[in-house]
Simulated scan of single mutants.
Amino acid sequence: MQKIVIAIDGYSGCGKSSTAKAVANKLGYTYIDSGAMYRAATLFFLNQGVDLTNKEELIRQIQNLQISFKKNPHTGKQETYLNGINVEEPIRSMEVSSFVSEVSKIKEVREELVSRQQLMGEQKGVVMDGRDIGTVVFPYAELKVFMTADLEIRAKRRQKELQDKGQKVTLEDIIRNLSERDEIDSNRKESPLYRASDAIEIDTSFLEFEEQVNQVVDLAKEKIGHYNKTI
């Protein structure tokens, strides 16, 4: 049976990553966390003290950036590795969250990471989430989903996620961070966040997690069935 590419875009805190992971698991597909790739790049630049306005330095340093994903043998969860080191926890910190949109809008960074993402998806059978997956990375993806949700609901979800990891952050700070990221992501010059014309929008504000996962899985199965009938 032929496989498809599933692109999930949307705002931070809508449940894109967790949904994409669950969808990939249910379909037996590979999950690619594009957001983690940008977060890993941000962490790398912060640790190296890279001047984000120095394009020559950025281009040189990004060649030293190796990002990979591995499943934790104990939890079964996919985790992010930066140059061979597990960085799943530090890339989710508020410090990285405060800089990731600035890093993501840099043309040279986006071009390099998009190229790597496209290579990952060449064999199909992948689910990737981010902000420009259906518009830039995989514009010809067989299924495109755009996820959205109320800002305060997104902030409460992010706060719980951070609390579960032992990080105490006020709801006000998270709302401010998400609002700023929405503004930067939607208005940046390079690959701005917007809904592709052929993307199916899902508002997750009042959906249970399993409901939003099942919606995407049902859409995927419909696309897979249609795709296999036409080949």
Rank of each mutant, 00 (worst) to 15 (best):
Q2W: 03
K3G: 01
I4K: 08
I6L: 08
I8C: 06
Y11D: 06
S12G: 13
S12W: 02
G13E: 10
C14D: 07
C14L: 06
K21P: 00
K21N: 08
A22V: 05
A22I: 05
V23C: 09
A24H: 03
Y29C: 06
Y31C: 07
S34N: 05
S34P: 01
G35Y: 01
M37V: 08
L43H: 09
F45H: 10
F45Q: 11
D51L: 09
L52T: 15
K55I: 14
E56P: 00
I59L: 10
I59H: 04
R60G: 00
Q63G: 09
S68P: 05
S68I: 09
K71A: 06
K71G: 00
N72A: 02
T80E: 04
T80Q: 11
N83D: 08
N86V: 01
S93G: 02
S98T: 03
F99R: 14
S101V: 01
S104F: 00
S104R: 00
I106W: 01
K107E: 15
E108G: 03
V114D: 06
S115R: 15
Q117N: 04
L119I: 14
L119F: 12
E122C: 00
K124W: 00
I133K: 06
G134R: 02
F138D: 02
Y140N: 13
E142A: 08
K144M: 06
D150W: 03
I153E: 15
R154N: 08
A155R: 13
L162V: 08
Q163C: 00
G166M: 12
V169E: 15
V169C: 08
T170M: 02
S179K: 15
R181M: 02
R181T: 02
D182I: 08
E183A: 09
E183H: 12
R188E: 07
K189F: 03
S191A: 14
P192Y: 11
D198N: 14
A199H: 05
I200F: 07
I200M: 12
I202S: 07
D203P: 03
D203M: 04
T204Y: 11
L207S: 11
L207Q: 12
L207M: 15
F209V: 07
E211N: 12
E211A: 12
L219S: 04
A220T: 01
E222R: 13
I224C: 08
K229F: 07
